[in-house]
């Protein structure tokens, strides 16, 4: 049985507008890393937002680990989906330190557990000496790693990454790609990664999903490629 199942999902921003995603279906296995490729405006980021619960589909259903998180009747709020997300510009809270950002999603853990998990995450992303820094005191690459640590800390069942390399320099990007692949393998997380750069997906993902902008004559907007 597939771990993440997206079935016949259609989404439009406002009634009367053309659909951004139309009748999209695909599935992912547990522990798999899938890349989503497509041109600007093809609905890549929207797909992640639908899975995270930040947007509501017009039709279709999404389930994770056998649990329906959205369909015609059900809508599970984002905080109850167990999904982690790394945003395009990282969205690190500017008024919190690296440590506060990472433990933000660990509010249900006891203090000691929280501390251990923070240490584990800092080690994973190799930022142990930066706990007291604020986001603006970090480089782009460091910010990206904090965002990743923050998203992974609550051990989400699925990690969603929206253009995680778009704010990085070319030389930094190459280094971080292999680092990220290693971190994801180590954490064993199921991950859906959106990028407009095929090289990102080739370097990190097990397979890729191509989405195309919806046109009147072009329904069923996704296809898989190896």
């Amino acid at each position: 049985m597939s771990f993440v199942a997206v079935d016949g999902v259609t989404f439009r921003f406002a009634a009367g507008q053309s659909a951004v995603i139309e009748d999209l279906s695909f599935a992912m296995s547990r522990g798999e890393t899938v890349g989503v490729l497509g041109a600007s405006g093809s609905g890549k980021s929207t797909l992640l937002r639908l899975i995270a619960g930040l947007e509501m589909p017009e039709r279709g259903s999404i389930s994770i680990n056998g649990r329906v998180i959205v369909d015609e009747r059900v809508f599970v709020e984002p905080e109850k989906r167990g999904v982690g997300m790394v945003f395009q510009d990282y969205a690190l809270f500017p008024n919190m330190t690296v440590a506060d950002n990472i433990v933000f999603g660990l509010h249900k853990l006891k203090r000691e557990e929280r501390r251990l998990r923070l240490e584990e995450m800092l080690e994973l992303v190799q930022l142990s000496g930066y706990v007291r820094r604020y986001p603006h005191e970090l480089s782009g690459g460091q910010q990206q790693r904090v965002a990743l640590a923050r998203a992974l800390a609550p051990q989400p069942s699925v990690l969603l990454m929206d253009e995680p390399f778009s704010n990085l320099d070319a030389h930094l990007k190459a280094a971080i790609r292999s680092e990220l692949r290693q971190i994801l393998r180590q954490a064993g997380t199921t991950c859906l990664l959106v990028s407009h750069d095929e090289a990102d997906v080739d370097a990190i993902c097990d397979r890729s999903l191509h989405v195309r902008a919806v046109e009147a004559s072009d329904f069923g907007s996704a296809e898989f490629a190896r």
Partner: peptide, 14 residues
């Protein structure tokens, strides 16, 4: 940025 609130929601905060 709206992403701050969205990040918080995906991190399990109501």
């Amino acid at each position: 940025p709206k992403a701050y609130s969205e990040a918080s929601r995906t991190l399990g905060r109501s």
